[in-house]
Design a protein around this nucleic acid. Structure first.
Lengths: 222, 222
DNA sequence: CGCTCTATTGAACCGCATCAACGAACGTGG
DNA sequence: CCACGTTCGTTGATGCGGTTCAATAGAGCG
């Protein structure tokens, strides 16, 4: 089975935070370490300060879906019926700001925080709706172009020559887009040969033509 | 293009509610009528009292994704940056309970309501995560079985012989699951021939073997 | 009845998965 | 420092699941 670095005995950052000063303390974690598992009781939700997280869900037979990649500013770990519904681990070293769950459950503790969490939840819903269109109705080439395009918007200014770092493996991208690693790889190659991107190693993507990328993302080009 | 009954001039239930007593008043709407469009400013969000709604998103070239079907108890119309990010129309006659947007934005108006809306948003996120696995990693047969299985859990007691009404067309189901109407139809036929369901017309599905349906939903059976 | 819209079924094609081989990067120990 | 194993990424050949195209069958309604 394929869940990288899953290790139930690794320090659970959530519980550490909950046992200490909570809210004022940030927690650091190493690349590859786990933040929480599907089914865990939710003690904290987390604001990502730095680093990249990966939210995944696994079917009994091992089929995997990457639900989201968490970047700085994102909030991860929203509960449903009190438990986590995805696994979460760190793709890079990361710094998280844990927020005890009762800030979510009980408004009276901190109304402002509650509003901020609501905003985060609404942004999450919106982002997921985008992802639906991608999973359900786009071709492999469009999916990969969309993925890079969204990342470019999110990280860089979007001008030609911006370099995107990809901390996730090809298999993570594949499981995010509902494809195989081979198909993802072929799509990268196609974009490279078309002069849209340039690869410096597998993890560094230089976007030579953001406009072309955008076009390919919405299927206006083959 | 394919957006059934889109009619910009039809009474927008949100604005009606907002202009009147708000919160205490329910609004009724006819099958096929529109509730809001993608890009509309969000004046209200809606709790579904009765009926079934359809949330859709359309790509420039006409490709369509059904984001969700809204059933009684669901909350629809959560804003992102103040605007709606899907179209929404009624598949059946429906009764909605509109809630002005400021109940979402400003906690001090009604803290309890704010908490309830947060719960709804969290449930929404959880449901969408389920949907991801379906869109990204399941076969056509599994998708259709999952769809019926979820609907059965949601509507009926789940025992053998329960009848599910499907107010949506095959094309809606197809656009929800990322398939074509032909494939959806073939999957229904396969389930019928396997003795898992019985069809009385296209819109009535009797579930003869809920356990089998569940198995097929998670791919434990071919 | 006749019109329209939806659902079903069949046949052929194609996009992506699958299977397989190879290459590149990296760490480890001799 | 180099031989070696391991993991990850790329590329090629083949096959299949679901789409596409096309025809037929119902269902609702004037």
């Amino acid at each position: 089975m394929y869940v990288a670095n899953s290790d139930r005995t690794c320090p659970n950052v959530g519980q550490i935070a909950f046992a200490t000063q909570e809210r004022t303390l940030n927690t650091t974690l190493k690349a590859g370490s786990n933040v929480f598992f599907e089914g865990d009781d939710v003690t904290c939700i987390y604001v990502i300060e730095s680093g990249v997280l990966r939210l995944t869900r696994v079917l009994e037979d091992g089929r995997r879906q990457v639900i989201a990649f968490g970047y700085p500013g994102d909030v991860v770990g929203f509960p449903a019926q009190g438990v986590h519904h995805t696994d979460c681990d760190a793709l890079t070293d990361a710094r998280l700001h844990p927020i005890p769950r009762r800030y979510l459950d009980d408004i009276r503790i901190d109304a402002e925080m509650h509003g901020a969490l609501m905003d985060a939840a609404l942004r999450e819903i919106s982002a997921m709706q985008d992802h639906f269109m991608m999973l359900g109705r786009k071709t492999a080439a469009e999916k990969v172009a969309s993925f890079l395009s969204v990342l470019l918007d999110r990280l860089g200014a979007g001008q030609a020559g911006s370099v995107i770092e990809l901390p996730m493996k090809r298999s993570d991208i594949a499981d995010f887009l509902g494809l195989t690693t081979e198909t993802v790889s072929r799509c990268f190659t196609a974009l490279r040969k078309a002069g849209v991107i340039r690869l410096s190693g597998a993890a560094k993507v230089e976007v030579l033509a953001p406009a072309l990328l955008e076009q390919r993302a919405s299927g206006q080009l083959n």
